[in-house]
Every structure is written in C-alpha cells, then in structure tokens.
Lab assay of single mutants.
Amino acid sequence: NLRWTSEAKTKLKNIPFFARSQAKARIEQLARQAEQDIVTPELVEQARLEFG
C-alpha cells in the first residue's frame, strides 16, 4: 500500500474534484512504476502535467 506525504495530499486537493479520483489512480500508478512506496509532490505534479 502506498503512503502519501502531507505535501502530496495537499497538491491532490488542488486538483478539481471531478478529476481527482482519476488523477489519484494515475499518481499511484506512476509511483508503482517508479517502484516507490511513498507518493511525493513531484509525482502529483507529474500527473497534473499529463492531465493538462
């Protein structure tokens, strides 16, 4: 299971509600691909840039 830093959680809250669950799934996918067990603000930002 993935842990989220408080900064990453804050960044996730800045994503519009309607896109948040999809973004969260993508962020967690990116973390797993990078073999990380902690979601960082950088991963959230990477996903945000993908979504535009």
Rank of each mutant, 00 (worst) to 15 (best):
N1K: 13
N1T: 11
L2N: 02
R3T: 12
R3A: 09
R3G: 06
R3C: 10
W4Q: 01
W4K: 00
W4I: 00
W4G: 00
W4R: 00
W4E: 01
T5R: 02
T5M: 07
T5P: 02
S6H: 13
S6G: 07
S6F: 09
S6P: 14
S6D: 15
E7Y: 03
E7H: 04
E7L: 07
E7A: 12
A8W: 00
K9M: 14
T10F: 09
T10K: 15
T10H: 12
T10V: 12
K11A: 15
K11Q: 12
K11L: 15
K11P: 01
L12M: 08
L12V: 04
L12Q: 01
L12A: 02
L12W: 08
L12G: 01
L12D: 01
K13A: 13
K13G: 13
K13S: 11
N14R: 10
N14L: 14
N14Q: 11
N14G: 08
N14P: 01
N14T: 13
I15A: 03
I15Y: 10
I15M: 08
P16I: 04
P16E: 04
F17I: 15
F17A: 15
F17M: 14
F17R: 15
F18K: 09
F18N: 07
A19Y: 14
A19I: 14
A19C: 15
A19P: 06
A19M: 13
A19W: 15
R20P: 02
R20H: 05
R20C: 09
R20K: 04
R20Y: 03
R20L: 07
R20T: 04
S21D: 12
Q22T: 10
Q22H: 10
Q22Y: 10
Q22M: 11
A23M: 14
A23G: 02
A23H: 07
K24R: 11
K24D: 01
K24Y: 06
K24S: 04
K24E: 06
A25C: 10
R26A: 07
R26M: 11
I27E: 00
I27S: 10
I27M: 02
E28R: 03
E28Q: 04
E28K: 03
Q29G: 06
Q29Y: 09
Q29W: 09
L30N: 02
L30E: 02
A31P: 00
A31L: 03
A31F: 01
R32H: 07
R32C: 05
R32I: 11
Q33M: 13
A34K: 12
A34D: 04
A34M: 14
E35T: 06
Q36D: 04
D37Y: 13
D37N: 12
D37G: 09
I38S: 05
I38V: 12
I38D: 03
I38M: 09
I38R: 05
I38A: 04
T40M: 04
T40P: 02
T40N: 04
T40F: 03
T40G: 06
T40V: 03
P41L: 11
P41H: 06
P41D: 06
E42N: 08
E42W: 05
L43Y: 05
L43N: 03
V44C: 03
V44R: 00
E45C: 07
E45Y: 05
E45Q: 06
E45F: 04
Q46I: 13
Q46H: 07
Q46C: 07
A47N: 02
A47K: 01
R48E: 09
R48Y: 15
R48K: 09
L49M: 10
L49I: 11
L49R: 13
L49K: 11
L49V: 10
E50L: 10
E50C: 09
E50S: 08
E50W: 07
F51C: 11
G52L: 15
G52I: 15
G52W: 13
G52C: 15
